[in-house]
Write a protein that binds this DNA or RNA. Structure first.
Lengths: 339, 339
DNA sequence: TTGTAGGCGTTATCAA
DNA sequence: TTGATAACGCCTACAA
């Protein structure tokens, strides 16, 4: 039907149905019961014929609430981010919110731009997983009473809830497993840590535990796009004389991918040399003899982020102290840590 | 700074700066040159102090344009979809649009809901990759002059541009490669085709080519979540006596994943039994001896979708006939098709 | 049960 | 160069 060149407005429906705007508004605002059956029919008919849909912009403007949640994702091509986003979206939907996702490609400039954008659309809450330090902008938002949740990465100076993996526990589980499997000399590989608190925490805990447990080991931070450098670093570690079997610990899924490539290039046999990655990926079971991982409960993390937002949205008057919600990783033991 | 409880409005800025709303509006609408330097300074100062940002909802309402492009994605966890989405987002950004993405999880009900949502926000264009047949809804949109692009999957009854892979060419390339590598008996594995035209096309072309080329082969359609059924189907194919080496052709990335799992479960040696997948994935090079793929130019597809939208947006008066924009796949020959 | 009027934050028109 | 005013589409007192 609907062949009007422009989207119909409430006024046109009202005219067409021979009723007032108010009645049409009521019809579409869940107050149908207050309208006579006859009027309901007429409105339904006109609205259907005209293809009328309430304009959410106008609604949002009037009501002062956009029903929009914003999400800033540092790297949309990272399966972990997508999985969390999926959880976030489901939760938003379940609570009548829509999600507006912005991918920043780890670019601080895009972060700022997209933040401005989401602000402009008056998102009622923000799930943030960023690289840079848009601390100032976020503080401003928080000050305007826009609830904020930090995902995976904390921003020291921003007062907001944070949800993510229990990194200490993850590292502990990883090291316990590797030691139990007989590996005694470890290399922890991470992307540069400046911009991501979770990376810092994982590396920090790794170093602590080494000292405490008397394990041999070292950590290295590398940009993943430089494959030769990564291969050199790994080769250096593996060539070193030692008394115990060696293993690699990958601080996240991207690292696991890059390291696995490097190990194949170096013709290393998995298992003989241990490999354990944080983040579960589709293919980890497929690369022989299977890559051991620590899986994050991504959907739960996404839901928790939204829950946190909604709680603050529900009680804006008393700003509860900011919390950390940490999740326990799950170990998927596979052949890459079996000697 | 900005510690007002609520977001500042243009009126508050105007008052604070001692000027009129109009001037503030001009300042933020790229008409700064028309304001005296003094006034510019005052407005900048007040706006900064108050943390003012133009309300995009109000702007959209007033201007009748939301600056929003909507995208409906059938399965956000499919890396192919994400890659295309990335291209779409970049292109939108480059042209001053923002992207609102909705994931439908292949659920027609969610498709309908999300479509309504995007409509409610008055998206100015729509990139659609769906499972079901929201043909009616989409037609209505098209009739309202909202430009539409179909991604990967055509909808027979909807008049809109379509962008995707040249499926015929993809199948041809795949079969040529497999035959050149000495495989003579083929199994093409696909997900059920009812809901996705691209699947139908790939399967259709596969059958055509078999007949034309005198190759042996068959096709099977399966829901991927039933691993045992898939294994049975593959085992049945492989057990059959034959004169020529056998190969599997996976109709998309999800299939490649499931089939690779099945082949490992069946302890099949890749290469000896050929394997070629449509869609390139992170891990295809990692699974020994490397899985041969046909890569889609995902970013280009995304950009083309937006281009198509923008063209129609730019010239709404003369509705050009709907086009198909098809892309050529790229062959990544690896060990899985080397005997 | 139904309608009238005013305003949400912005921009466009017109006048000064 | 500046400002007053009227919309944009909708919702919500308030009135009938």
């Amino acid at each position: 039907m609907a062949d009007s060149p422009r989207r119909a407005t409430i006024l046109e429906v009202a005219r067409d149905a021979g009723v007032s705007k108010t009645s049409v508004s009521r019809y579409f605002s869940g107050e149908r019961d207050r309208l006579s059956p006859d009027m309901q029919r007429r409105i339904a008919s006109s609205a259907g014929r005209l293809g009328y849909r309430p304009n959410q912009m106008a609604r949002g403007l009037k009501a002062g609430r956009s029903r929009l949640i914003g999400m800033l994702v540092a790297d949309i091509r990272n399966p972990f981010s997508v999985a969390v986003m999926h959880g976030v979206e489901q939760a938003c939907r379940a609570h009548g919110f829509s999600l507006m996702v912005c991918n920043t490609d780890n670019d601080p400039a895009q972060e700022r731009d997209h933040l401005a954008l989401l602000t402009a659309y008056r998102v009622e809450g923000l799930v943030v997983n960023v690289t840079g330090r848009p601390g100032h902008e976020l503080e401003a938002l928080a000050a305007q009473d826009t609830p904020l949740v930090l995902l995976d990465r904390a921003l020291g100076d921003v007062e907001a809830d944070m949800v993510g993996l229990d990194n200490d526990q993850a590292i502990d589980t990883a090291l316990d497993h590797l030691r139990a499997q007989g590996y005694g000399e470890l290399l922890c590989v991470s992307e540069p840590t400046e911009q991501a608190s979770s990376r810092q925490q994982r590396l920090g805990r790794f170093r602590e535990r080494l000292d405490a447990d008397g394990l041999q080991g070292e950590a290295c931070c590398l940009a993943l796009d430089d494959a030769p450098a990564l291969e050199r670093a790994i080769a250096g570690f593996l060539d070193r004389p030692s008394h115990a079997p060696k293993a690699l610990l990958c601080a996240n899924g991207n690292v696991t991918l890059a390291v696995t490539r490097a190990l194949q290039a170096l013709d290393v046999t998995l298992g003989e040399t241990g490999l354990l990655g944080i983040d579960e990926l589709d293919w980890c079971a497929l690369v022989a003899p299977g890559i051991t991982t620590l899986a994050q409960p991504t959907e739960a993390i996404g839901r928790a982020a939204v829950d946190s937002l909604l709680q603050r949205l529900a009680a804006p008057e008393r700003p509860a102290p900011s919390r950390q919600i940490l999740f326990t990783p799950e170990l998927n033991a596979r052949g890459s840590t079996r000697r």
